[in-house]
Design a protein around this nucleic acid. Structure first.
Lengths: 178, 178
DNA sequence: CGCGACATGTAAGCAGTTACATGATTAT
DNA sequence: ATAATCATGTAACTGCTTACATGTCGCG
């Protein structure tokens, strides 16, 4: 499906960036729903370059360090917008190792189960708190056509996801305690 | 992480099965959080066999059709239970193509956006309804140590997940309509 | 007899992670 | 000076999907 391709085109569609910058975007809010390591990003950039969807210019930083500042071409923009507006069937449900484990949890004694659950709960509560803190930056919903809107959406989605997981964990914990 | 390995061991720990049966389990409720195709299952079974974690006996079905009925060994059980009780950090957040697309949605006009959102909403509502119907089979919560308990948990988790997604989509739709 | 489900495998390729490898810049 | 961050790449491997390939069983 070449999703990484479109993730990169989408980012370059906002503004020119280096491969390193793209990697950093994936560790911000966008990373709640898509990420890639630099070892995947650099080869993909090379591919997009060959396909004529992006170009780069060398920037000198400091004395000698060359960095490649990539920007999207007209062809790249078209390709990206085609992808963006296409209606697709929903994805198969994403894999989740912890829930797979809990599917088999009838083979664990109740104390072990509770330990595992509390451990998960704490981590998800941390993540939720962190997301809520990020969302506080927005006193109001950003305009529909601003770059910030996507960020806001992703945060909202991640908060609802974490809330659901926490609710599930709490239900489960209360079953175990009865 | 060899997760498929443990998914298979977990299923065989309930009862002996063929590779085909394992594939079918992944298209039931467990499939909400883990799946694998037969092209991945058969090679993995071969590997587990070599590792001594499972064994099989040939069953004749009809006149000549040989099927391999796999069961877990003592060594397999131990390995599985070790995996099951180990506390792990939470997984990095799962990828989601649709949310990635919506991250870039400020480049779409409002009608296209609403089309895409309604399209997703319908599909998630269908999935939710289907899950709720499955859950109706349980009038009460199954006992903590029964095989059904895992099934119930998974359903509960999937329902909460879908509810969160639907809520997010509805929020998003209402922003767009304002 | 034909069709859908049962049943088992392999091959090619894409996507993603971990590890290997190198070097410059900036702030302390 | 030295550590953290900036910056770019490749290689080996795991996991997973799609397609290729084959044959049986049970039902209508």
């Amino acid at each position: 499906m070449r999703t990484l391709k479109y993730a990169i085109l989408g980012l370059l569609n906002k503004e020119p960036m280096t491969g390193y910058d793209i990697g950093k975007e994936f560790s911000r809010d966008l990373g709640e729903f898509w990420t890639a390591k630099h070892s995947q990003i650099y080869p993909e950039l090379k591919k997009l370059l060959n396909e004529g969807l992006i170009v780069y210019e060398i920037q000198i930083s400091g004395e000698i360090l060359e960095k490649k500042l990539y920007s999207i071409t007209e062809e790249g923009k078209e390709d990206f917008l085609q992808w963006l507006k296409k209606a697709e069937p929903i994805e198969p449900t994403p894999k989740d190792v912890f829930r797979l484990r809990m599917y088999f949890s009838n083979h664990l004694d109740v104390t072990t189960r509770l330990d595992l659950l509390e451990h998960q709960l704490l981590q998800h509560q941390d993540r939720l708190e962190h997301l809520r803190k990020n969302k506080e930056r927005y006193e109001t919903i950003p305009p529909l056509d601003s770059d910030n809107f996507g960020d806001y959406l992703v945060l909202d989605g991640a908060i609802l996801r974490e809330t659901g997981i926490i609710q599930w964990l709490e239900n489960f914990i209360s079953y175990c305690k009865k």
